[in-house]
Design a protein around this nucleic acid. Structure first.
Lengths: 133, 133
DNA sequence: CTGACTGCAAACGTTTTGCACGGTA
DNA sequence: TACCGTGCAAAACGTTTGCAGTCAG
């Protein structure tokens, strides 16, 4: 019980009802944008403020609990930080999924060609999901 | 001469001085954000309007001449559309470079694991460039 | 009990829109 | 010349801030 509250506390954030709701929505949906987050929260907290959501999202980013995912031609979404993965976006239904694929070859090749030493990679693939095909 | 004007006309955009300047800055810098674009344009067109820049950028996106590149923790930049490539971002100096690396293996693996049929990929790698190391 | 969090309202920065004028084709 | 593009001003958005009241620890 209340493992979501624990997650918040591990990141030095007080476990308020609004924060617990935000994190459980991230757990449930995987990825969510501010607008959807707000309208979902209104159902449970009819007087929740957009300011509260922004403040909490920003604090969760600073504390390393979540991160923003920027996707071409789309509003940013937020996700809980977990092991590295890439994003699959369905251009038909808009769904976003995480998958884990080895990217070492590409990164090594990029390092070799560019001379950069790479620390992070952000990969988004756009296409049609099995359900939409 | 005026190959930049030709490029605009190929995309059904009138070759105005402001548009020619925008496109030549994209050719020169590779990637540029709205703010830098505006302050550079002010040098040559002291009364240019930010509205004009936004309108032109949006039209160039619609006509398929340029695209927005969203990079984590950074303002969006714009680039001319050309052959597929990935973006290297130096986390020290902020420079953005294009490189071409084969990504077929990763994409095939992603298709196999996810069942998606992938049409586009967006890859950004963050690290330290040779100059900053 | 105390500091942190919430909700409200106002402020802010960015992007878009409407309109009259001016320039391109 | 006719239409499209420009610049200005205002409006529309999305996000942030300040403050007074409230709540979690």
């Amino acid at each position: 019980m209340h493992e979501t509250a624990e997650l918040l506390k591990e990141h030095h954030l007080k476990a308020t009802p609004q924060r617990i709701k935000i994190v459980s929505m991230l757990e449930e949906y995987g990825h969510i944008n501010i607008e959807d987050l707000y309208s979902e929260m209104l159902k449970q907290f009819p007087s929740v403020s957009l300011a509260t959501i922004y403040k909490n999202i920003n604090q969760m980013i600073e504390s390393g609990l979540i991160q923003e995912v920027k996707i071409p031609k789309t509003k940013s979404v937020f996700e809980l930080i977990k092991e590295p993965h890439l994003h699959m976006v369905c251009e038909s239904c808009g769904k976003i999924e995480d998958i884990c694929v080895g990217t070492d070859k590409v990164i090594e090749e990029a390092e070799r060609l560019s001379g950069y030493s790479i620390k992070e990679s952000f990969i988004t693939l756009r296409g049609i999901c099995p359900d939409c095909r």
